[in-house]
């Protein structure tokens, strides 16, 4: 029975090809530093999963955001765990992605033929920071509010277009319900979509060129 289902699926999916192309790839000798990329991906998936579950109770409006998070933390079974993982996962992801980038830099893995992999990767780093920045406002507590006031104000000092940037970020002149809902939208739709797409490109490029080897004396 199980074998029949497997055969039926295999005929259509082609597990063999998947195995050969995805898993059974040759690689140069690596070390533990090479695990940081997959660790970043793992954290992205964790953030995605816990983030989706948080939206079950979270309400992105100034009147309810704070209370709904208090409810997640105290009222719902395991709410503290889901939010705790999301909270710490965010910090950890920024850290791991950054170290992953430093590793790539110091081993000069960004050089031919992996220039584009680096460019996409550095965009991924910036998007990760963007996720941290937009997610920071969502609890709508003192810390979130003031950090966003100050951060958007920094955008406002750019000569000429500063005022425009400030208003575009905040959705008006003040940090308000509009700011919260646009940060929410960016945090759960726009940035994750961009991240997921670029992660796909990043992974494709890695598979196309293979994992880089550590440089020798004569490289």
């Amino acid at each position: 029975m199980f074998k029949k289902i497997y055969a039926w699926l295999d005929e259509r999916v082609g597990f063999d090809g998947l195995y050969k192309n995805l898993l059974d790839r040759p690689e140069p000798h690596g070390n533990w530093w090479n695990t940081l990329g997959s660790a970043s991906l793992f954290l992205f998936i964790m953030q995605g999963a816990t983030g989706i579950f948080l939206t079950v109770y979270y309400t992105p409006s100034p009147d309810h955001a704070y209370d709904s998070i208090q409810y997640i933390m105290n009222g719902v079974a395991f709410g503290w765990l889901i939010r705790g993982i999301h909270h710490w996962g965010a910090s950890l992801m920024v850290l791991i992605v950054f170290i992953h980038m430093l590793r790539t830099f110091f081993s000069a893995s960004y050089k031919y033929p992996r220039e584009l992999t680096w460019i996409v990767g550095s965009l991924l780093f910036l998007l990760t920071l963007g996720m941290g920045f937009t997610g920071y406002l969502l609890p709508f507590n003192q810390r979130a509010y003031w950090a966003t006031v100050v951060a958007t104000e920094i955008g406002g000092v750019v000569p000429g277009i500063g005022d425009f940037i400030l208003k575009a970020l905040r959705g008006g002149t003040d940090v308000s319900a509009l700011t919260l809902s646009r940060f929410f939208s960016a945090h759960i739709w726009m940035l994750p979509a961009a991240l997921a797409g670029l992660i796909g490109v990043h992974l494709y490029l890695i598979m196309r060129h293979g994992e880089s080897a550590y440089p020798d004396q004569d490289d």
Partner: peptide
């Protein structure tokens, strides 16, 4: 002279994750 993605790399990746 290297290794295979499966199982060599994945093993380490998994432990770190």
């Amino acid at each position: 002279k290297g290794e295979r993605f499966w199982p060599d790399s994945i093993y380490k990746d998994l432990l770190v994750s």
